[in-house]
Design a protein around this nucleic acid. Structure first.
Lengths: 215, 215
DNA sequence: GCAAAATTCAAACGTTCGTTTGATCGTGCA
DNA sequence: TGCACGATCAAACGAACGTTTGAATTTTGC
């Protein structure tokens, strides 16, 4: 039966995403998921083999593209501020999307604290390229041939400002609920983060030249 | 029997801290904890009532002082950069301490993603005071009577740089292992983060005056 | 040295979990 | 109509979990 693409399968994926994100892999029970999906217990075995298969599908399926590497390449041709605005827009984009994508992101950050094995793939496919891009860009901006510890610190600091809006989303909604209230607010946030990054980079450039003089 | 303060109780706390941090509250089993502690299953009931009681003790006990509020008050008398250096030093201090404190911090950040109820207390006792202090300091620095969204964004950005070294510690050890390698490295990190923050604040001041001119 | 309390122990209890089973229903095709 | 297959269903299985029990063992106070 493929004419309907099996509605139950999709309902299972939706319910599983919601519950895995809310309670974690261990915390979400198969009975709970099936009940939320209006499906029978055996449906998990039928469509996904077992709970782990359902989790894997939930984790991987809703993600269309793994942060198109071309996007990062495109940013290379921009000057610093527009490149950073584009970077942060790209990074924060899922926050504007449907609830489902936010839940997938939450699943991904869950992997940071409780790795199920998919975390390593995530690092290789998404995080390291982004980090490397940022490091390379900072080296170019600061006129360095190779990254040193200060560049690494700066890269981590710049990216961490954006990461925080995923990891600490609930906290931010509590402390400053306006910051992610609308797509416009998220665009503005990307602009501000880019501004912060520009300031940090400029400050680092000054620190380096000043230090060069001092020594 | 209080002369020994019961070695088994302490061994349980140590093992529980390690396992709760590694596998989460649900993931760590009482049998596993007792085996690691060299204690009998019933020891949990005997000393802590049940698993939740053990978790609560593990969560709260190793923390001596809840970020002494006096420390925050002290920073008020400092100029911007020294105040920020002091803030980040205070914030990153646990990273220099023993492994146990790091594990407690990991437990605390676990609460962010998987709240067990202690998370709300954590917000009230630790996080909100720090956030409010930072917002107030930024308002003073920017000459504002009341915080607006831009100040909130800036405060979140400044604090997030430091938070990231807890939440994403494993990732940082992978991408840039030097940054947390020694107590000296952590002191240097606090200085650099303070420098970043100063740059961001200065940039924000310029943006605000420029924006005021433009309108 | 002895009774009482503190602590430890092996064994089992009841529950919940993920999984499996075998039957049943509905639809498409000969 | 009858068969085959996709899909669903109620019911149960075995394992692992947190918890409880009641007795054994060790330590304390006198």
């Amino acid at each position: 039966m493929e004419h309907d693409a099996s509605a139950a399968r999709q309902r299972l994926l939706d319910a599983a995403l919601r519950l895995f994100a809310a309670r974690g892999y261990e915390g979400a029970t198969t009975r709970e998921i099936c009940e939320a999906a209006g499906a029978n217990l055996s449906a998990i075995r039928y469509y996904f083999g077992d709970k782990a298969g359902l989790y894997r599908a939930t984790f991987c399926e809703p993600l269309g593209e793994p942060t198109d590497p071309a996007r990062l390449a495109d940013m290379a041709s921009l000057t610093l501020r527009p490149a950073l605005v584009a970077f942060f827009r790209e990074f924060l984009l899922p926050l504007k999307h449907s609830e489902a994508v936010q839940l997938v992101m939450k699943l991904h950050f869950r992997e940071m604290i409780e790795p199920t094995g998919l975390w390593q793939d995530e690092i290789d496919a998404e995080i390291r390229p982004q980090h490397d891009w940022m490091v390379a860009r900072l080296c170019a901006e600061l006129g360095l041939d190779a990254p040193d510890a200060d560049v690494q610190r700066l890269a981590v600091a710049v990216i961490s400002m954006a990461v925080h809006y995923y990891v600490g989303r609930e906290l931010i909604d509590l402390l400053a609920p306006d910051l992610l209230a609308s797509p416009n607010a998220i665009d503005l946030l990307a602009e501000r983060l880019a501004g912060y990054a520009v300031s940090m980079i400029e400050g680092e450039r000054l620190r380096r030249t000043g230090e060069g003089d001092a020594h």
